[in-house]
Amino acid sequence: MIREYFKYKTTITTILADKKEHIETAKNAMINARQEIERTILKDPIFGSSLEPYETDSDSEIIRKMTNAGNLAGTGPMASVAGTIAWEGVSAMKNKGAKFAVIDNGGDIALISDRTVKIGLYAGNSPLSKKMAFLIPPAKEITGICTSSATVGPSISFGIADSVTVFSNNVSLADAWATSICNQIKMPFNDELFNSLENSDIIGVFAVIGKDMIRWGEIPKIAAANVDENLITSG
């Protein structure tokens, strides 16, 4: 397995693959996606700054993915930017024949795999952080595992959760919903915020607040782990 750190402007990723050519394919696809998003923001700055659902007349598939995800999750389109870029990278790898491809874009992960993949949980100062991992089973279709936090990193959040991880085959949607749910989790906790996920493309949600865990839907098996902080993708 090849592991490569890749940074392009503020897109900071870790790419896993079995072949070097697939790594290069992923890089090119992510650069292209990032440039497409930048061109859209130059023409329509509100696309890049809105914190609420936003409509655009762009015919770009990437931009439509982000816009649709934000509209469904109640966020701005940029809430799904990291997941969308990772998704584009893994999609390109898959199209080149990759059976194993993982891109971690700052905690927003897209993957396909012919083996079980262990995804460690990082939840800031929570006592549960770095102590457990999701066991993602082999899958031919791309899976999104996207995490947002109100206590870690530079992203804007209006909630209190140390981490919210969302699972979906629509990686853009997983990213947007991770942001949305993280914004909404406050105390006392009200599980009605999950009502809008019924009959959606979201498979499951796992949230951590301090020592407490919140689950919704189907969550992959969780195993005890000692997560190596050096493997966490960051700037």
Rank of each mutant, 00 (worst) to 15 (best):
M1W: 04
M1G: 15
R3T: 08
E4Q: 14
F6M: 12
K9P: 11
I12P: 07
T14E: 07
L16H: 14
L16Q: 14
L16F: 02
D18P: 10
D18Y: 15
K19Y: 12
K20G: 06
K20P: 08
T25R: 13
T25G: 10
A26W: 13
I31E: 06
I31R: 06
A33R: 02
A33I: 11
R39D: 15
R39L: 13
T40E: 15
I46K: 09
I46Q: 13
E52L: 14
P53W: 01
Y54Q: 12
E55I: 15
E61V: 15
T67V: 13
G70K: 06
N71L: 08
A73Q: 01
G74I: 02
T75K: 01
G76F: 02
P77W: 10
M78R: 05
A86G: 04
W87T: 07
K94S: 02
K94G: 01
K96H: 12
G97W: 04
F100L: 14
A101Y: 09
V102I: 11
V102D: 04
V102S: 07
S113N: 05
T116S: 13
K118L: 06
K118N: 14
A123L: 09
S126C: 13
P127H: 07
L135W: 01
I136W: 05
P137L: 03
P138G: 10
K140L: 15
I145H: 00
S148V: 01
A150Q: 06
V152Y: 00
I156N: 00
A161I: 08
S163T: 08
S163Y: 01
V164K: 08
V166Y: 09
N170S: 04
V171W: 06
L173Y: 00
L173T: 07
A174R: 14
A176K: 06
W177C: 12
S180T: 00
M187V: 12
P188H: 08
F189Y: 09
N190D: 08
L193H: 04
L193P: 09
N195E: 10
S196H: 12
I202S: 00
I203K: 03
V205C: 02
F206T: 05
V208A: 00
G210L: 05
W216H: 04
G217C: 01
P220D: 00
P220S: 04
A224I: 09
A225I: 05
V227A: 03
I232N: 05
S234Q: 13
G235N: 14
